[in-house]
Amino acid sequence: MTPCLRFVSAAILKVDGRGLNACFDVIHQLNVRTPADVRSMLEQGGAGLAGGTQLPGMVSRLVSELQVVNVERLLNSCGVSAEKVTAIGQRGPVCGREFWKQTGSATSIGDPAILAEATGLTVIDHFEQRDIAKGGNAHGLDVLPMWLLLTQAVDSISARPKVVVRLDHSIELFYLPARRKNRPIPAIAYHSLGPGFALLQALQSLCDNKPGTTSVRTADVDALLQRLEIEKVSADSPHQIKSLVEGIVEELPQLLASSVTLNQTMESYWADAIHQQVQQHFPSSPEFAEIIVLGRGARREKLVQQIAEKFPDVTVTTDVQRGWISGAVGASIAAIFATLHVDQVSGNLPDLTGSSAARVLGRITPGNPGNWRGVLAQMELAARQTVPLREAV
């Protein structure tokens, strides 16, 4: 499970097989809307945590209590007994990650002890910290669980790759090649386009909403954002976002004439930028089997249509069409990270994150004795199995 600023989301995954050959299916999902006071603390938590003015423990407790409610509701609504759940993958909101990268230590938003005590289930969290401890930056860390979630292990060599576009707080592109059984991890690729809705929301707060405004050329926006080096801006950094907004206000103030103009222009810019970056950074052969749009952008029909027009020969789908609720993919990724830890498979790709070695990611908080014994038994079984050198810890 994983909280964002708007929801605390959870999903139950059915796992068939182990390690890189496993098949993951989302069998149930649920989210709880974050109360206004908790959301306000999370939105302001970045500056507070950095300056020591916000108490991290209080925020963690509030988030964990929401997670406990979510787990209980999820299990009750789908009729799954807690005894059948191996572990919970817990992941904090993105507002804490900027400081992990700066200090090399993790400030967790969400207390695993509260979740383990209330549910009796073993909790695995702090997935980014192990990569950062080995010199990585945790960029693109989601690419391996994303690959496992959206591809199936097959024997055929004719399977084609997929591209995932995650349009959310930031805009991220994932190249997911076909997954073959009992083979090493192929060349998975990741590329960040910089802030997405984090930038849009900051700009919307400055809009004049004047009637009769004219449109802004997408090419002008593209040229300006390239000069401002948007790809180097972290969506988790309020200071970098503020600097980017100031540059836009100074050089292209007409973009803020109305929220309608702003939304239409940014959607066109995003569609163009995604097309350009996919062509530039991802292999063109074999042809893509599918482009999957995730996040808040998947709920904007016009934006999805513009992306589809840029790739006329490729099927474009969304998480909405797959029946996934908002946040379900993020919650599933946390669950897959937990599964990889139990199976003792490294969850980071050093070529992408910059770490000096591949590592099994996560920290364990044991649940009740019966659940904890079951987790230990599965980990012992995984330790006796031979793994490829690239996946060794």
Rank of each mutant, 00 (worst) to 15 (best):
R384F: 09
N21P: 06
R359E: 15
Q90M: 15
P286G: 09
K310S: 00
L193Q: 02
Q254S: 13
E290W: 00
N209W: 05
S158H: 13
K181T: 07
K84M: 11
Q240S: 10
S215N: 05
S81Y: 03
K162R: 15
Q54A: 12
L121G: 05
L255H: 01
V249C: 14
G120C: 07
P211N: 06
A159V: 06
A235D: 08
Q240N: 09
G79I: 00
T353E: 04
P93L: 08
E83F: 03
T365Y: 12
R183E: 15
R6C: 07
A153L: 02
K210M: 15
L206G: 03
P388K: 00
V316K: 03
V314C: 07
L141K: 14
G57Y: 07
G110V: 03
G295N: 01
M266S: 02
T103C: 06
A273T: 01
E117W: 11
T218G: 00
A357T: 04
Q54H: 10
A257V: 02
P186A: 05
V316Q: 07
S215Q: 04
C4D: 15
P177L: 08
M41P: 11
Q152D: 12
V143L: 11
N31Y: 14
G194P: 00
E391M: 15
T386C: 12
D236R: 12
A178V: 09
D313R: 14
G89I: 05
V123P: 03
V154T: 06
P112M: 03
Y190R: 05
I292T: 12
A377Y: 01
L361S: 02
M146W: 09
A357P: 07
P145A: 00
S215Y: 08
R180V: 11
I185K: 13
E72T: 08
S268F: 00
I364L: 04
N371S: 10
F311W: 02
V143Y: 00
E246D: 05
R6A: 11
Q378V: 01
S326N: 13
A87V: 08
V59R: 00
L49M: 14
N137E: 15
L55I: 09
R384H: 11
R322W: 14
P369S: 10
A358K: 15
L352F: 04
L141G: 01
V304F: 08
H239D: 09
V221R: 01
I364N: 05
N209M: 03
L303K: 00
G110C: 10
V143C: 09
M58E: 14
A118M: 08
Y269S: 01
G297E: 04
L262P: 01
E301Y: 08
Q277C: 06
D111H: 07
A198Q: 14
L206D: 13
L340A: 06
E251F: 04
E172G: 03
